[in-house]
């Protein structure tokens, strides 16, 4: 089967219909299951989101981050023993010790961000994890790293909380200052916190912000972002 590139509106319409129908047809039939089984909440796994490299959306994201759809269900909100917590645009969030994954035994667990709206008691966890350094092939936090300070720009990321964004990062040990400028406001220094010997920070970016800048500094000097990364981040449309 062959197809040609569309030249005019009608061709493009037909081309799109054919493309979407062909793509949809690749979703196969499944063996019948009972509606009761089908209506159980989906069972999810930890999903490794590192090392895929593509950069297409408005918000720069972390190389060293995982999205945790853990198999365990949310047993309590607020979580016990949060390291840091806050409320953004009316929605609460917490940072907790990263969960221990059996295959990552002996590795640091990093931190895990829990937003209230996506984590309802009885349903499954929906969290985002952070650690510094290039992950192992198995997706675990490295025991040690040779990463340079500019890797901090790869170890940050944001998630929507309310209509704002919670921006979180894991820092290279030499980075001693995180400077944040939200919109056109005066820059301020983000508070950092320690966990498992690593240094992290979290910044609440209010709803309605168009852009914000996060610079990492070593001895007062701004670390230059690595190629393909930027200190300026664009908030996604609401």
């Amino acid at each position: 089967m062959t197809t040609t590139r569309p030249d005019d509106r009608r061709d493009l319409d037909q081309h799109l219909r054919r493309t979407l129908a062909a793509v949809a047809a690749t979703v196969p039939e499944q063996p019948p299951v009972s509606a009761q089984a089908a209506t159980k909440p989906p069972r999810r796994r930890w999903r490794l989101l590192v090392g895929v490299g593509a950069a297409v959306a408005a918000v720069p994201l972390a190389a060293a981050a995982v999205v945790g759809f853990g198999p365990e269900h949310v047993d309590r909100i607020p979580p016990s023993d949060p390291i840091v917590s806050g409320s953004l645009d009316g929605e609460r969030w917490w940072i907790v010790d990263g969960r221990d994954v059996p295959r990552c035994e002996g590795h640091p667990s990093g931190i895990e961000v829990i937003a209230e709206d996506g984590n309802i008691v009885g349903q499954e966890w929906n969290t985002v994890g952070y650690f510094f350094g290039e992950p192992t092939a198995g997706g675990c936090a490295p025991r040690s790293t040779n990463a340079t300070p500019d890797y901090s720009y790869w170890s940050d990321g944001g998630q929507v909380v309310g209509d704002g964004m919670l921006w979180v990062g894991a820092l290279h040990p030499e980075v001693d200052q995180v400077r944040v400028a939200i919109g056109g406001d005066e820059p301020f220094e983000a508070k950092t916190f320690e966990h498992e010997g690593g240094t992290y920070y979290a910044v609440e970016v209010p709803a309605g912000t168009a852009t914000f800048v996060v610079d990492y500094l070593v001895d007062g000097e701004v670390v230059v972002p690595p190629p393909g990364e930027s200190a300026e981040h664009v908030m996604p449309p609401g």
Partner: peptide, 15 residues
Amino acid sequence: LRRRRLLRVEPEAVT
């Protein structure tokens, strides 16, 4: 956003 950001959108053999 994180997942969408990291999603590879280069052509892949789907059809």
